[in-house]
Measured scan of single mutants.
Amino acid sequence: HTVDVQGVTYHFDNPEEARKFAEEMAKRLGLQVHVKDGRYKVE
């Protein structure tokens, strides 16, 4: 499970961890979480 944050890619084994990380980063950076091709993108 992959999370892209402003061009940096993070990998997680656990989909729940990936989702939480994406939401946390989006909140911290004031950005949105998009799901695209099964990847989380924070932009």
Rank of each mutant, 00 (worst) to 15 (best):
A18V: 03
K20L: 14
G7N: 09
V8T: 13
D13T: 12
V42T: 02
R28P: 03
E16L: 11
K20G: 11
K20R: 12
V3L: 01
A22E: 00
T9W: 08
K27I: 10
H34E: 09
E43A: 07
E16P: 05
K36V: 15
N14A: 13
G38P: 02
N14C: 06
M25P: 00
E16S: 11
V42A: 02
G30N: 08
L31G: 09
T9Q: 11
E24Q: 10
Y10C: 04
V42R: 00
G7A: 06
G38L: 03
D4K: 05
V8F: 11
Y40R: 01
V3P: 00
F21D: 00
Y40L: 07
K20M: 14
A18Q: 05
A26I: 01
T2D: 14
R28Q: 12
V35T: 06
V33E: 01
K27D: 11
D4C: 08
E43I: 07
R19C: 07
H34S: 14
Q6L: 15
G38M: 03
K20C: 09
Q6S: 08
Q32D: 06
K41L: 15
R39Y: 15
A22G: 03
G7L: 05
L31Q: 05
Y10M: 05
G30E: 04
H11W: 12
Q32L: 08
E17Y: 08
K36W: 08
P15H: 14
V5R: 01
V35F: 15
L31E: 03
L29N: 03
V33K: 01
F12D: 00
G38K: 04
Q32A: 13
K20V: 13
N14G: 12
P15F: 06
V33C: 06
T2W: 15
K20S: 13
T2K: 13
D4I: 07
Y10D: 01
G38H: 05
E43V: 08
M25H: 07
E43K: 04
K36L: 14
V42M: 03
V42W: 02
T2C: 08
Y10V: 06
K41H: 15
V5C: 07
A18R: 02
R19I: 07
F21N: 02
F21W: 08
E16T: 11
G38R: 04
R39A: 15
L31S: 05
R28M: 13
H1D: 08
G30T: 03
P15W: 07
G30Q: 06
R19P: 02
T9C: 07
K41E: 15
T2S: 12
K20A: 13
E16Y: 10
T9E: 14
E43Q: 08
D37S: 04
D37I: 02
E24K: 10
V3C: 05
Y40F: 10
F21V: 03
T9M: 14
E17V: 10
F12T: 01
E17M: 11
E23V: 11
V33H: 02
Q6A: 08
H11Y: 14
H1P: 12
G7C: 06
L29M: 06
F21P: 00
D13E: 13
F12C: 05
A22M: 01
T9H: 10
D4W: 12
E17P: 06
D37H: 05
K41C: 06
K27Y: 09
E16R: 09
R28N: 08
K27Q: 12
T2N: 10
A22T: 01
G30I: 02
A26N: 01
T9Y: 10
A26W: 01
E17W: 07
Y10T: 06
V3S: 01
A26Q: 02
K20T: 14
L29H: 05
N14W: 10
A26K: 01
H34F: 14
D37T: 02
H11F: 13
G38D: 08
Q32G: 06
P15S: 14
V8W: 10
G38T: 04
D4Y: 07
E17C: 10
G7Y: 05
V3Q: 00
F12S: 01
Y10N: 04
V42D: 02
P15C: 09
L29C: 05
L29G: 03
V3I: 02
V8M: 12
L29Y: 07
K20F: 12
Q32W: 07
G30Y: 04
H11A: 10
R39C: 10
M25C: 07
K27P: 01
R19M: 09
A26S: 05
T9V: 14
V42N: 02
D13C: 06
G7V: 02
H1R: 10
T2I: 15
D4G: 05
E16Q: 11
Q32S: 13
A22C: 05
D37P: 04
F21S: 02
